[in-house]
Write a protein that binds this DNA or RNA. Structure first.
Lengths: 133, 133
DNA sequence: CCGCATCCTTAAGGATACTG
DNA sequence: CAGTATCCTTAAGGATGCGG
């Protein structure tokens, strides 16, 4: 009888795995792309700088909390800049950095792939669903 | 006094937004890529077909539930094939389809971008953190 | 060996109200 | 205008045991 259960071994593996991917650039980027608001913000800003209120209007259905949170992490990552104009009322502009623009380029590649292959995916789903039913 | 509150308008916008993205190929693909197990499975299979137990060993820390769930959706989407050999005990092989291979190609592009630019991101973070602190 | 069904936890994200 | 602070829900995902 082993002293470690399957769950314990998996837990151990998970910890090692987490430590591994923590330093993995690809996974860090996927984490960003996985955030649904990130891609929307980057896409919105790819047309040029926007103010906070513009973004909240353009990106329908986003709560102030998530918008701010998303903007902060993207600023920290050097994807966009935050410029405060201390007028009354205050004005804040967000704009993509060169790094942010290159990320937008990646999103364009994803978009292209999606548009090229989505039909195949839909066909595959229909086939799968009819065969399974 | 308006008959709709800000929350109601945002909710309305969210519903429209959801309806919009439901048919948006790019977002459907991002939903897939956002799933952390999806990229790992695709990456694992890009080296060739693997059995269920091989995958669960190679992808450290995955629970049987998530592995099966991931494999099923990918099969449904035509990304991979599932081949059952009715021996005793049963044997099941998973392999990428051509469509799956092209998705793996996209992941490679993401990987390349990440490796190229991760250093800039790290520098940006350090700058941000020291400036904020 | 492969994988489904069940239960349970927890953390992401939404609603809301208030401030500089 | 541009957020911050708080509370609260809910759904993704992990543990586990059984079945084909």
């Amino acid at each position: 009888m082993p002293t470690t259960t399957a769950a314990q071994r998996r837990e151990q593996a998970r910890v090692e795995y987490d430590a591994f991917i923590k330093g993995c650039p690809t996974n860090q980027l996927l984490d960003r792309l996985s955030d649904k608001w990130v891609s929307l913000v980057v896409a919105a800003l790819s047309g040029g700088p926007m103010r906070y209120s513009d973004l909240s209007r353009k990106i329908a259905g986003v709560s102030p909390k998530m918008l701010t949170q998303t903007l902060r992490t993207l600023e920290r990552d050097g994807i966009l800049t935050r410029t405060i104009t201390p007028s009354v009322p205050v004005r804040v502009d967000y704009a993509l950095t060169p790094l942010g623009s290159s990320l937008a380029g990646l999103l364009t590649a994803v978009k292209t792939w999606a548009e090229t292959h989505i039909e195949e995916v839909h066909e595959a789903r229909e086939r799968y669903d009819t065969e399974t039913a």
